[in-house]
Design a protein around this nucleic acid. Structure first.
Lengths: 199, 199
DNA sequence: CCTTTGTTTGACAAATTTGTCAAACTTTAT
DNA sequence: ATAAAGTTTGACAAATTTGTCAAACAAAGG
């Protein structure tokens, strides 16, 4: 028992991440998380003190991980279009595993307008983001992409990538798409998005 | 008293709509709704029997209204690009008043995978939607827009419109945008979206 | 073997939220 | 004016959920 149970903490976090960010079950209770992790409910309190602290922790970690991955992907390339391609790959992969990360954050922001939690208040324009905007500006001056507010360019990129994943359950119902069909459509999007941004 | 209170039911629905679809407070309790409506909490049960029935009702109504508005806007025009322009106008207007309508539906779908509620199960490809897809196809054949899967075209349109509104709270924190700045950016998007779709 | 430390459990208390009910109150129609 | 129907209220019960605690248990070191 002891050997396996030594990573109880990790099991709980994994279960919570899956419920929240992957399945979008924002109302999941500590009991549901514990069940999904296959552990006793009070262990959530033992390891994380409270439900909200657990949420904050996995949110924090997810953000840090994502930031690092994008940082790596972007800095590896010198060509702007290649950078964007890399960005799309990483972001899309992330979106498949954690489709609800962003809107979870949004609902948390809205949840409680006054008593804002630390992690969300800490959201700041990162160095990476600033660099990215600067890159876009450079490309416009070079003429690689058409004249556009860099913020709008970024907004377009994120929208085209993120929204289809968020809206997936609705869309599947509307169009009677299977999981497989949906995934294929998403994969086909990469080329489409590139065309829209650069053509 | 009596005259004013005769539309208690309406007041409750208005308050719920605002909390859910406008402010994205998905966890709002009956007490909060009642407070926002300025009425006694038990009146929610009196008029709607249960919390969930109230939610279902306003969701149903919102969908019907939106459908009708789009129907009108789209059928009024013969020119495809004009149709899209109209669509953008209506959809954007809707998004300003009910930015969280879509993701509320998504979270409701995810909430409870087995016991699916009626309204959400009822989601079907509407006549309007089918016509729209057919229109897109026609335009491709005419050469007005580049060759693309009509579903992908629709997905692009919806993404470019919807996502910025959904992500608004996150975005405002990241870029330190005021409400006014954000709105201006959104308004500027109309032209940008048209360019991306048709150029 | 025994102690110390860390982990797990069930029982319990507290807080939150929902829904019901009878009584009070209003309005409308007779 | 009175009855009937509809509306509003506070009190109550039930359900759900969270967090605490002491006791049980397991592992590791002396």
């Amino acid at each position: 028992m002891a050997v396996k149970d030594s990573h109880t903490e990790q099991q709980i976090k994994d279960a919570a991440r899956k419920l929240f960010f992957t399945e979008g079950r924002f109302k999941a209770t500590t009991q549901e998380i514990a069940d999904a992790a296959g552990v006793n409910r009070t262990l959530v309190n033992y390891y994380f003190r409270s439900r909200d602290l657990l949420f904050d922790q996995i949110l924090q970690e997810a953000r840090t991980t994502m930031d690092l991955r994008l940082e790596m992907a972007m800095s590896a390339e010198t060509d702007f279009k290649k950078k964007i391609e890399h960005f799309i790959d990483i972001f899309m992969e992330q979106s498949f595993t954690y489709p609800y990360l962003d809107i979870y954050m949004v609902t948390r922001i809205n949840e409680d307008v006054e008593r804002q939690n630390q992690i969300i208040t800490d959201l700041k324009k990162t160095e990476r983001l600033k660099n990215f905007l600067r890159d876009i500006d450079t490309e416009i001056k070079k003429g690689t992409i058409e004249k556009i507010d860099p913020v709008q360019f970024l907004m377009n990129l994120m929208s085209l990538l993120s929204h289809p994943v968020v809206i997936q359950p609705l869309f599947k119902k509307l169009f009677n798409y299977s999981d497989k069909q949906y995934r294929q459509m998403m994969i086909a999007r990469k080329e489409i998005i590139l065309k829209m941004l650069f053509k």
